[in-house]
């Protein structure tokens, strides 16, 4: 049984929806209402799904990956409206991984981070590749984006550091040392990999 302190710690670490994303999305949707009302309707529905998931998830500490993946799809659809041609996404979930449990908003946080660095800061945009697999009792979530690691640049990005540290801390509280987050960088691609044990 988890202590109240443990639960509070986990809640504090759970990712909040980024306000920049929130208001920029609403602004894009306002534009879509005139340009493409059907698409605007679809985006409002996705926006609601994402908000609901973010507001409701904190009462249960893990969800099936398939549920998290749906929300990430909604998130990516909303960001595609903002970034248009600058965002190219490849998203694959191994069928064997779909029913595995993940902490909510964990894949979302990785993808948001990838967009922030791989797309938002690059005028030419870039690619984001998301891949989930189950390997020998471990769920592996890989998120890659175009770009270089912030550590390679003089001013490290503190928001991102906090975001990544929060993910690490959540994994530690939930799984001890059996889960991990690693980052690597090479050939103009940054890859974040989370490994989560599939048995509690």
């Amino acid at each position: 049984m988890r202590s109240a302190v443990h639960t509070a710690e986990l809640r504090a670490l759970e990712a909040q929806i980024n306000p920049h994303f929130l208001f920029n999305s609403l602004n894009s949707i306002r534009g879509l209402v005139v340009e493409d009302p059907r698409k605007a309707q679809d985006m409002i529905t996705r926006f609601a799904a994402l908000l609901r998931y973010n507001l409701n998830h904190d009462r249960q500490h893990t969800v099936p990956l398939s549920q998290e993946a749906e929300v990430v799809e909604d998130y990516l659809a909303l960001e595609s409206v903002r970034f248009e041609g600058r965002l190219k996404v490849q998203f694959t979930v191994d069928p064997a991984a779909e029913s595995l449990q993940v902490p909510p908003m964990i894949l979302q946080a990785l993808v948001e981070n990838a967009l922030k660095h791989g797309i938002a800061k690059r005028p030419e945009g870039g690619d984001v590749r998301i891949h989930a697999t189950a390997q020998n009792g471990v769920l592996v979530l890989e998120v890659e984006n175009s770009g270089e690691l912030a550590a390679a640049r003089p001013a490290a990005d503190t928001d991102t550091q906090i975001g990544l540290n929060n993910i690490r801390e959540r994994l530690r509280l939930l799984y001890g040392d059996r889960a991990s987050l690693s980052l690597k960088n090479g050939d103009g691609v940054v890859a974040a990999t989370v490994r989560i044990p599939t048995t509690a």
């Binding site: 920029n24 602004n27 894009s28 306002r30 534009g31 340009e35 005028p123």
Partner: peptide, 27 residues
């Protein structure tokens, strides 16, 4: 940087004919 954001501002600015939009930039 967002085309939709520029288009949206342009639409709202249409109510202000004294403002002539000489161009848009995305970066």
């Amino acid at each position: 940087d967002e085309r939709l954001a520029r288009a949206e501002l342009r639409r709202i600015l249409a109510a202000h004919p004294e403002i002539e939009i000489a161009g848009e930039a995305s970066n």
